[in-house]
């Protein structure tokens, strides 16, 4: 398993004091009926860290990040976000979700709202930000994901790549500390994937804490601090990308990489 101290981000100043974890997962287990979906997961993500999680379908990678903002309820173990443990308390869940932005495989934009409406609905309703201010914020993020001209359109009028960038902007409008990406490019045509990845890379370069479930290994190489390989609900291997790709330790990791990096 991983020795977290290998990673310079943990303690760059060399003070010996651990910075607060953005996400701390200890002994996490989840079952769907008899199916053991997550098996003794331990994971500590520090602020500013970029994690890429990969693995075959059904390996539990999506379930893992969906547990972090409680779209899935875990059965055993603990998840803390920003030092606050996730419990059944709806207030606590709500507060945690406010700190975490999520981007889905199928965008999940609200089809009956314009892009701008999609972006302002949560800031206005959750953070009680005034419309004018929320719209200003939304427009700045839409500019940042380079689709400022699409603000007044409905999601159905945009291409897949534009929709996913709009979804990223929508998540950013809540000023999250952490961003979760659940296979953000899997539903996109190959030629469009790059525009979404570029947006994610820009976000990473701005210092956002990110957990990305993706099979885009080029992206992992470029920005990940750690790559995590999961299989059958367990974390099989964790390594810095250079080591992960050049020198995978586990047989299953090698098999997976052989399949995916034809």
């Amino acid at each position: 398993m991983t020795n977290l101290d290998e990673f310079p981000r943990e303690d760059e100043a060399g003070t010996g004091i651990k910075p607060p974890a953005a996400v701390e997962i200890i002994g996490l287990n989840k079952w769907y009926g008899a199916y053991h979906a997550l098996h003794d997961i331990d994971l500590r993500v520090v602020t500013g860290e970029r994690i890429v999680i990969c693995g075959p379908s059904g390996s539990g990678k999506s379930t893992l990040i969906r547990c972090i903002n409680r779209l899935e309820r875990h059965d055993q173990g603990s998840i803390s976000v920003g030092g606050l443990e996730l419990t059944d308390d709806p207030k606590r869940v709500q507060a945690t979700r406010r700190e975490i932005g999520m981007v889905f495989q199928n965008f999940n934009l609200f089809p009956h709202m314009t892009i701008l409406e999609n972006c302002v609905v949560a800031p206005m309703s959750v953070k009680k930000i005034a419309r004018a201010q929320a719209e200003e914020l939304a427009r700045s993020f839409l500019a940042r994901v380079r689709i400022p001209e699409q603000a007044k359109k409905y999601p159905g009028q945009l291409s897949g790549g534009q929709q996913q960038r709009a979804a990223i902007a929508r998540a950013l409008c809540m000023s999250p500390r952490i961003m979760l990406f659940d296979e953000p490019t899997s539903a996109l045509d190959p030629e469009i994937i790059k525009e979404v990845l570029d947006t994610m890379i820009a976000l990473a370069n701005d210092g956002m804490t990110m957990l990305c479930v993706t099979h885009e290994m080029g992206f992992a190489r470029q920005i990940a601090d750690r790559v995590i390989f999961m299989d059958h609900g367990r974390i099989v291997e964790t390594a810095a990308p250079a080591n992960f790709f050049a020198n995978p330790q586990q047989v299953r990791t090698r098999q997976f990489l052989n399949q995916i990096l034809r």
Binding site: N69, R70, L71, P90, Q94, R97, R98, I100, G101, M102, F104, N106, N108, L109, F110, V121, A122, S125, V126, R170, A171, M174, L180
Partner: peptide
């Protein structure tokens, strides 16, 4: 309505009442 719509609402921090009414 696809489950993803409700999930996206939750992920944005919206409560069920708001999700029901707005989404």
């Amino acid at each position: 309505v696809p489950a993803g719509q409700t999930e996206a609402g939750y992920a944005l921090g919206l409560g069920y009442a708001t999700i029901l009414r707005r989404i």
